[in-house]
Design a protein around this nucleic acid. Structure first.
Lengths: 226, 226
DNA sequence: TATAATTAACTTGTATTCAAGTACACAAGA
DNA sequence: TCTTGTGTACTTGAATACAAGTTAATTATA
């Protein structure tokens, strides 16, 4: 039997493993080994090692010398700081946007909300698609105030946060809530209600923390440090 | 002749190269090769490759397949976003700190300022020592409002910014100015002058940008993208 | 039975070799 | 003079063999 993966370049292997970690196909804490992936991707240990080293430096995996390699557990303290950081930065960005608001931005937001609504209407839809729309919604205002690079920088820190949000969507199926929060936030922006934006954004970004907090101590405990 | 480096572990090689990049001993844009470092550190290409891969994923170097490896150039757009990010986050942190100020924090800040003053008094002092005190000064308030993890997160993004600050100190010798800015910021904090903090922090964090801006188009041009 | 030593089967780390691609100097030809 | 081809010396990429360390089961010993 041959592997399903043929002629994969170095970068492809890295991307495949990373995607599997972000979509929780490789679970937090799961044991993996170079030999295992060497067989799976039908290449020698060297390119696997390259991918592993990169994933390690990005904190997706942890390499214990002569012992083994593990997918990193989620660090709740770290996640809380990311949420704080995002709240502070995004509040600033949206308040700036409100001061020079244009119709085309509101249209983009409306269009995105419509897409979210349609997606939820479908019985079976890919979670990753909703995740994508969610990200895009937030990006629209960063893009408008010309802070796309800042958005990229924040994205780079999503090592634990992306998996956390993915866990929220999978474990609690909170699509409708997320959609409503986005809708409310949109209304605040449209009405130029600065105080409303602050409140909504804060509760929206802390939302998955609230929803998951009960499960973190129970069935999802194994995915977190401590 | 044997190398001056013996029995260096994988991590040591990584740290050595990284330090050399951050302190500009390896210049932005400089060509480096695996063989060169293999000889320098007296190990095979494999551990050098490990270090290079990690440095690449952290954007310290750029590996061009079959062509060569180069220390990354400084990205001014990126640096500006980091400065914006730091300004927004640190303003929020300091304003929070002012609301629950304690004497011990002011003492720490004063003590740090004293050390800065003493260091500048010495004729020949290590630039890295001043850089360290500078960082510590800013860290004190993050630590006080229990945002040490946020500080660490911001630090991780210093790939270009650390070298930029180092360049400021080296190229303009702006110790006294930096010291005075720190002192003024301290006075604002002590007086609980929130507006003053906002102004001072903003101009302080944008200071090296102002000082270097002239040289970026001339003698330091080779260190930057575009 | 309980404990300690041994062994075998795993890890990842390193060195080495070869493969594939690039860059540049240099010479042949128009 | 300019262009083109070619060879050489470089680069990084990948495969392989072995080294060194960990773990856990098994065996020998008290």
């Amino acid at each position: 039997m041959t592997s399903q993966f043929q002629n994969l370049s170095n970068k492809d292997v890295y991307q495949c493993i990373k995607d599997d970690i972000l979509t929780l196909k490789l679970e937090p804490g799961q044991y993996i080994s170079e030999n295992e992936f060497s067989k799976k991707y039908n290449v020698s240990r060297t390119p696997i090692k390259s991918a592993f080293l990169r994933l390690m430096s990005e904190k997706f995996i942890e390499i214990l010398p002569q012992r083994g390699t593990y997918v990193t557990l989620l660090d709740l303290e770290y996640i809380k700081e990311i949420i704080y950081m995002r709240t502070v930065l995004e509040t600033e960005v949206i308040l700036t946007a409100i001061d020079c608001l244009e119709d085309k931005v509101l249209d983009k937001l409306e269009d995105n909300l419509k897409q979210q609504e349609e997606l939820i209407g479908i019985d079976t839809f890919e979670i990753e698609d909703f995740y994508k729309l969610d990200s895009e919604f937030h990006f629209i205002l960063f893009d408008f105030v010309k802070r796309t690079k800042l958005w990229e920088i924040i994205q780079e820190f999503q090592v634990y946060y992306t998996r956390f949000r993915m866990l929220d969507i999978v474990a609690t199926g909170s699509f409708e809530k997320l959609y409503l929060e986005h809708f409310t936030l949109y209304q605040c922006v449209k009405a130029k209600d600065k105080e409303g934006v602050k409140e909504q954004l804060c509760s929206h970004l802390h939302g998955n923390l609230d929803r998951l907090s009960g499960k973190i101590d129970n069935e999802l405990k194994k995915y977190f440090i401590n």
